[in-house]
Design a protein around this nucleic acid. Structure first.
Lengths: 220, 220, 220, 220
DNA sequence: TATGAATGAGCTTTCATTCAT
DNA sequence: CATGAATGAAAGCTCATTCAT
């Protein structure tokens, strides 16, 4: 976590540092990101950086926190279209809304995803807490689906969650890879064809998971 | 490609260098891998390294070539269980055999996967050739499945391949994450529970793809 | 241009670095000059060097700038002996005064001359600006001489300038070769015999150029 | 001097090594020339090189010897146009013939000149012998001119020789700088305009030296 | 609290030369 | 005599971090 000195900074200055850091991590990943470049681009003193953050990891953690916060804020205003959604409808809404969020701040998403998913930090002890959040939510969702009778109760929950996570990451990766070549990421994200592709990917997952017959049960 | 000098080396020495390199790339990825550490661990002079390889990328490419070669050798002895397999049965056999291969040299798989999949080199021009191989094979497989009537002809082929590739990578990732923590990785890979999980993941994909109704067709 | 950090250094430290660099370039030329040796002799850290300069070329450019500045300062106090000098008299004064300047900082002159004249950088894009200065001045001087009737108007101006530049460089080279072997270089430079030799060299050039008959005109 | 092993080599192999070395020194000068590149381009073993030559300097010396030999051979067939040439006519013939020689093997001339003239080795102890040759010849020529009454006997011989050498080097440099940009060096060297420029330069020197009045005499 | 100079280990790569075979 | 692998010093340059002011 950044030191108190960082939060005492004027909003504007703080924003510059964060923006520059986002660009750096998005462009270079964690290992290759350079504090030297960041302080140079931010226009802050080298020493100041170490008065704000304990190091590179601390700065990156801050970006993760920002992403989590922004995502929470974004979702606070959104509501599922109706009360009678089954779990898969709800999940579909969840992913598509998340996709919409990605389009609002693609560079931040890219920076964090690149490091967490691609450099393996996602599974490190360091960020286990973020993963747990996601796992907890998904587990709850799946439990509810089982209670509602939408999913066979004998399902291998742990595996199902892994599958869902895989899909989430795949969709995010898809978004980042394709989207970055677009001049207008936002327009691309909202385009009907993009939406359609996302839907198709979700359907494949849904029908796979719905098929909850003998093969997809826990070993007796 | 390594220089001739490298291939002139005694088998044993060559093996040491390759083994050390595998560990290095597996532990650090491409960017953070250090030639200094590699030569120190290999017990060769720094200058010697550059008589064997033109640089870090050259060394890594060699690992990729080794992996490709070993995979080819491994598959040469394996045969699908029967002649009448449908596409999904064949694909399931393919993935499971590949999974078996991964267990024979997990660190090599990890080294290459980490760099190609996670550092994005997989999509770079440099390794486009490897990706094309895979894509070509999958496309042919899918075309055949369509001709056989196993898959709806109106399917969005490009998307389907992306989904299959996602699954391949997901299964490889699963293997690396879980498998590497096992003391006896071969035993773990052959264990019924492990096999069952792989099968389940494949069934999810299969039933997802089989569902080739209106939602999963190309836009008219 | 050196970075601001360099100019923020205490005068004394800056002087040490410059002096060491002069010795290095004078002794080894540009290519063979070693940053390692420079930082070792200067007593600064390697990293510090790159906080002062962007690289070897940047450091060398700084020496060129210093030379230009010192030369300007030196000439500011000197004045041609009289108002009615003809062009050749003026040029003679110019060269002799320049010669006097060389004696004030012979190693700096040597360092810069060696690199610019001998390693061909003088004709590189990098230092084209310095050469243009000189060329412009000489051209103006020659035009004036033609207007005054001191030089045949049909002269091949471009060639004449090349000849004058050759003489300038030759005299500088002479100075460096002979002068640097003298214990008291200033005394040597001021000695009547030295002055006389310079004068003779200039006369040879002058009478050669004055002879502006048929052979030395532009081709009709 | 190269070792005997070198001269035992088949003519063809020897020629390849020499040709490659010429290109290397012409392109990079002495310091930056790379034995590594030379042996690679020559197709000889690294160790073999050190059985032929004691080192880089030895190889370069061999090029100088070849140049001297080829120049001698070239001049053996040429004869001054008439017996009654005065010294300046003879010198003009000398320079123009030398210029003609340069055009026959420009890369060799460039390689040697670059190192000797530009990297200062010309004035080093190492190559003093070559310089003495030239000096001896010029001194004899000048003595003869004095005896013939073409040059004032009170002339400062040492200075005159320096001037002549300066011109020689200047003309060679001119040849190398301009000529290298020409697609066809030989054609350029033989072009009337080139010849004319050379003549003009020589006239400037000649008329300068002829002017043997009071100013150009040794100090009394 | 802000600053930015200082640091030395580290990076990848090239070098001329040696020497065992 | 030929070979080419081995070598370690040296090259230019970047790094994250410290610390005195």
């Amino acid at each position: 976590m950044p030191k108190q000195t960082f939060f005492n900074l004027p909003e504007e200055k703080r924003q510059i540092i964060v923006d520059v850091a986002i660009e750096e991590f998005a462009d270079y990943g964690f290992e290759a990101a350079s504090i030297n470049r960041i302080v140079a681009s931010s226009g802050i003193a080298k020493g100041s950086f170490y008065q704000y953050f304990s190091g590179k990891l601390d700065l990156f953690r801050h970006l993760v926190d920002i992403l989590a916060q922004e995502k929470t804020d974004y979702f606070r205003d959104k509501h599922p279209p109706g009360n009678n959604l089954d779990t898969f409808q709800f999940y579909r809404w969840l992913v598509k809304t998340g996709f919409g969020f990605n389009a609002t701040n693609p560079r931040l998403v890219q920076a964090v995803s690149r490091v967490l998913l691609n450099e393996g930090l996602y599974y490190s002890q360091e960020f286990a807490v973020y993963r747990e959040q996601s796992t907890t939510m998904l587990t709850a969702m799946l439990q509810q689906a089982i209670e509602r009778g939408e999913v066979d109760p004998s399902i291998d929950v742990e595996l199902a969650i892994m599958i869902i996570e895989t899909w989430n990451n795949a969709i995010t990766s898809y978004f980042l890879k394709e989207g970055l070549q677009q001049a207008d990421i936002m327009a691309w994200a909202r385009a009907p064809q993009t939406q359609e592709r996302i839907e198709k990917m979700l359907y494949v997952m849904e029908y796979g998971l719905r098929k909850t017959e003998s093969e997809f049960k826990t070993t007796p």
